[in-house]
C-alpha cells in the first residue's frame, strides 16, 4: 500500500512538472520534452507487446511511420483538419496493424521478430519507393499544421508550447489507456502469454486473438505517436519506418524497463539526455548505446526504472503485488 502511495505521489509530481514546464523552461527544452513525450508514447506501445506480451517486434516503426504519412496525406489531400488527420492515422494504423498482426501473431519469439521486421520494411519500401504519393526518400512535407481547435479555444500549433500541450495530452491519454489495460483481466492474459503461452491456451484462451488485440492496440498507439512525430518535424520521412527506428523503441524500453508501464518513458528521457551528453564529444554515440544495452541485458534486464522499483521493494521487504 505504502509503495503504491509513494508511486502515485511520484506520478502526480511528474505530471504536474510536465504540465507546468512550458511556464518556466526555455523553448529549447520544451522542444526536447516534446520529442521525449512523443518517443515515450511510441516506446510504450512497443512495451505493450514486448514487456507485457513477450512479443519482440522489430517492425513497430513501420506502423509508427505509416501513421505519420497518413496524417500528412490527409492534410495535403483532404480537409485541413487536425482531428481529421488524427482520425485518418488512427483508422489507418489500426487497419495496417490488424493485417500485419494477423500474419505475425501466429508465430513466437524469433519468427515474430523477423516477421514484424519484414512487414515493417515492406512499409518502409512503400514510403521510400512510391515517389508520386510519398515523395520518396525526400519525405513528405510542405503541409501547414491546422490550428488546434478545442471548440472553446483555438490556438496555433506553430507555437512550440501549444504543440507541447497537445503532445502531453495525447501521451497522457495513451499512458492512461495502457495503465487500465495492463491492470485489467486482458492485461493478465497478456502477461500469462508472456509467461507461458501454451499453458494459457490449454485453459481455453484464444491466445491468437488476445495477441492480435494487443498488436492492434500497440500499432494504433504507435501510429498516433507517428502523427505527433511527423507534425513536430513538419515532415514524414521514410527513416521513420526503417527497422533502425524500431530499434530506438527497443533501446528506450530496455533502458527504462520492459514490463514496467512507465519504463519506456523513463528510457526515452535517458536516451535523449545521453544523446545530448555523448554527441557533444563524438557523433558515434551508438557505440556507447550499444555497450549500455549489452550491460543492461546482462546485468539489469529490468532496466533503470524496473531495477529501481525492485530495489525499493526489496528495501521495504514486501512481496510483489
Amino acid at each position: 500500500m505504502r509503495i503504491r502511495r509513494a508511486g502515485s505521489l511520484w506520478i502526480v509530481a511528474s505530471t504536474a512538472f510536465l504540465a507546468a514546464a512550458p511556464f518556466f523552461l526555455s523553448t529549447y527544452w520544451i522542444l526536447i520534452l516534446t520529442e521525449i513525450l512523443t518517443m515515450s508514447l511510441f516506446a510504450m506501445s512497443f512495451n505493450l507487446l514486448f514487456g507485457y506480451t513477450g512479443l519482440l517486434s522489430f517492425g513497430q516503426a513501420g506502423i509508427f511511420g505509416a501513421g505519420g504519412y497518413l496524417a500528412v496525406l490527409s492534410l495535403l489531400h483532404g480537409p485541413s483538419s487536425l482531428w481529421g488527420a488524427f482520425a485518418a492515422a488512427l483508422a489507418g494504423s489500426a487497419l495496417i496493424s490488424l493485417v500485419i498482426g494477423w500474419f505475425c501473431v501466429r508465430r513466437d519469439e524469433i519468427y515474430f521478430a523477423i516477421l514484424t521486421l519484414g512487414f515493417g520494411m515492406m512499409l518502409f519500401t512503400v514510403a521510400h519507393n512510391w515517389r508520386s504519393l510519398t515523395g520518396g526518400s525526400d519525405g513528405l512535407g510542405g503541409f501547414t499544421l491546422p490550428p488546434l481547435d478545442l471548440f472553446v479555444w483555438r490556438g496555433s500549433l506553430a507555437d512550440p508550447r501549444h504543440f507541447y500541450f497537445l503532445v502531453l495530452a495525447v501521451a497522457l491519454i495513451g499512458a492512461i489507456l495502457l495503465y487500465r489495460m495492463v491492470n485489467s483481466p486482458f492485461g493478465l492474459m497478456l502477461r500469462s502469454i508472456r509467461e507461458n503461452t501454451q499453458r494459457l491456451s490449454f485453459v481455453g484462451a484464444d491466445v491468437r486473438a488476445v495477441r492480435l488485440c494487443a498488436f492492434v492496440v500497440a500499432g494504433t498507439l504507435a501510429g498516433i505517436a507517428g502523427v505527433l512525430f511527423a507534425f513536430f518535424n513538419r515532415i514524414a520521412s521514410p527513416e521513420m519506418l526503417h527497422w533502425a527506428f524500431s530499434g530506438k523503441a527497443v533501446l528506450m524500453t530496455i533502458l527504462g524497463g520492459s514490463g514496467v508501464l512507465l519504463g519506456p518513458a523513463v528510457g526515452a528521457a535517458i536516451f535523449f539526455v545521453l544523446e545530448h551528453v555523448i554527441t557533444a564529444y563524438t557523433t558515434n554515440w551508438m557505440v556507447f548505446l550499444g555497450a549500455i544495452l549489452i550491460v543492461l541485458v546482462l546485468a539489469f534486464p529490468r532496466g533503470v526504472l524496473g531495477s529501481l522499483l525492485d530495489l525499493v521493494q526489496r528495501y521495504r521487504g514486501r512481496p510483489r503485488s
Binding site: 513477450g54 519482440l56 519469439e109 524469433i110 551508438m286 550499444g290 555497450a291 544495452l293 546482462l298 534486464p301
Partner: peptide, 23 residues
C-alpha cells in the same frame, strides 16, 4: 534464458560494432 534477451544482446552488439567501425 529468454530467447529475446539473446536477440537484444546481439542487437546491442551490432550497434556497438557498426558504430565502432565508423569510429
Amino acid at each position: 534464458r529468454d530467447v529475446s534477451l539473446q536477440l537484444l544482446l546481439t542487437f546491442g552488439l551490432m550497434l556497438f560494432l557498426d558504430d565502432g567501425v565508423r569510429l
